[in-house]
Amino acid sequence: MSIKPPFRADVVGSYLRPDYLHTARKAFAQGNLSQQELTAVEDKAITELVQLQKEAGLNVITDGEFRRSWWHLDFMWGLNGVAKKAIDNGYSFSAMQTRAESVQLTGKISGDNHPFIEHFNFLKQFAEEGIVPRLTIPAPAQFLKELEREGNREQTRAIYPDEDELLQDIAAAYRTVIQQVYAAGCRSLQLDDCTWGMLTDPKVQRAAEQVQVPTCSCGHDHQPVATSALDNLLNKLLKVNNLALEGVPEDLVIGTHVCRGNYRSTWAASGGYAPVAEVLFAKEHVDAFYLEFDTERAGDFSPLAHVAEGKKVVLGLISSKVGELENADDVVARIQEASQYVPLENLYLSTQCGFASTEEGNNLTQAQQWAKIALVREVAKRVWE
């Protein structure tokens, strides 16, 4: 079996934290546990998680993002020139708001000595024949959008009045991190990116488009006509991601996971991939797309027709948000349906997202989590072996 990702049975990367890790992180936040003591607890939890991943028959292992509070902010806080920031309101999801934290620039951005390199070094020790350790980080576009969100934009513009300089520095910081983690032995890097997933939602599109209604004396109503603002945004997201991937070594496999939000089993956006497909699927310089397809919120498979030739698509058909187990026959049928647009040999299977994009985790049990992983394995064997 090839040990080059993606794998027929793959994962997005985050897992539910054990109760004792939640307890330790709470004690650390309250000042009742030292960093050294917390790290020892994290090491134990990750070691146990890796063993469970291997026992589940996976070819890829991650640290479950157990050292993080957020899937994205912890990485951003580890960049030079970036500080943690408390804000008034968290991210808005369908049923709740998240904790209210973000980032703030304190100076120019760079990526030297990122703490995630040490995180990978700990995971790397568990690699063996047929087992690939993977690092997951937020995409450059995700960092850009965080810097440009309301409440952050003014400080970002104060330090970077020239937007192109901002894009260049973000990309350069990521290239530094990528070079360092590659030197540490990483050959599977995943860029998690909600920016594209959010732009599948018509509400978000309208906000980006600044829709205008043309005037006409004919007496008929006209549909709104979008300005080029949405296209400009899509191209800017593409630019910063591709700049960051310039010079990536040929044997470093880059995947990107496109998500519509994953917080305590809720979601933030709803819509098919069509609005972003021609830019994302055709032009982003990644090897594989990990795509959410577990509910009708993600639309149909037709936008996959835009996937560039030879690129891999990992179908996220198994929900990580709910404990109820999908029907294997239904999942097999959906893979066959997707193969109308992407050759079956270029298709793979995973859960639609991680099980715990933030430390709170989704609303399912550890047993349900591993049953989902087992189902991914079962279906993959049926379809490809």
Score class of each variant (00 low, 15 high):
Ser2Met: 08
Pro5Leu: 06
Pro5Cys: 00
Arg8Pro: 00
Val12Gly: 00
Val12Asn: 11
Ser14Thr: 15
Gln30Ile: 01
Leu33Trp: 02
Ala40Val: 04
Lys44Tyr: 03
Thr47Lys: 15
Gln53Ser: 01
Val60Met: 10
Thr62Glu: 05
Arg67Thr: 02
Ser69Arg: 13
Trp70Ala: 07
His72Arg: 03
Leu73His: 12
Gly81Phe: 05
Val82Trp: 05
Ala86Lys: 13
Asp88Phe: 09
Ser92Phe: 06
Met96Ala: 15
Thr98Tyr: 09
Glu101Thr: 14
Ser110Asn: 15
Ser110Met: 08
Pro115Arg: 11
Phe120Thr: 01
Asn121Ile: 08
Ala127Gly: 05
Ile131Pro: 05
Val132Arg: 11
Val132Asn: 02
Leu135His: 12
Leu135Phe: 04
Thr136Pro: 05
Pro138Tyr: 03
Pro140Asn: 07
Ala141Trp: 02
Phe143Ala: 03
Glu150Cys: 03
Gln155Leu: 10
Thr156Gln: 09
Tyr160Met: 12
Glu165Cys: 03
Glu165Gln: 15
Leu166Gly: 03
Gln168Glu: 15
Asp169Trp: 04
Arg175Glu: 01
Gln180Val: 00
Tyr182Glu: 02
Ala183Trp: 04
Cys186Gly: 10
Cys186Glu: 08
Arg187Val: 00
Ser188Thr: 04
Gln190Arg: 09
Cys194Ile: 13
Trp196Val: 13
Gly197Asp: 06
Asp201Pro: 11
Pro202Asn: 09
Lys203Gly: 10
Lys203Asp: 13
Val204Asn: 12
Gln212Gly: 03
Pro214Ile: 09
Thr215Pro: 04
Asp221Gln: 13
Asp221Pro: 06
Ser228Tyr: 04
Leu243Arg: 14
Ala244Leu: 09
Val248Lys: 11
Asp251Trp: 07
Leu252Pro: 11
Ile254Cys: 02
Gly255Asn: 07
Asn262Cys: 11
Asn262Tyr: 05
Ala268Gln: 14
Gly272Lys: 07
Ala277Gln: 09
Leu280Pro: 13
Leu280Met: 15
Phe281Gly: 02
Glu284Leu: 15
Phe289His: 05
Arg297Cys: 08
Phe301Lys: 08
Ala305Ser: 15
Ala308Gly: 06
Lys311Val: 02
Ser320Phe: 02
Lys321Trp: 00
Leu325Lys: 08
Asp330Arg: 11
Val331Trp: 08
Gln336Gly: 08
Gln336Phe: 13
Ala338Gln: 05
Gln340Thr: 09
Val342Leu: 10
Glu345Asp: 15
Tyr348Gln: 10
Gly354Leu: 01
Phe355Gly: 00
Thr358Asp: 06
Thr365Lys: 11
Ala371Met: 06
Lys372Ser: 01
Arg377Ser: 12
Arg377Cys: 04
Arg382Pro: 00
Trp384Asn: 05
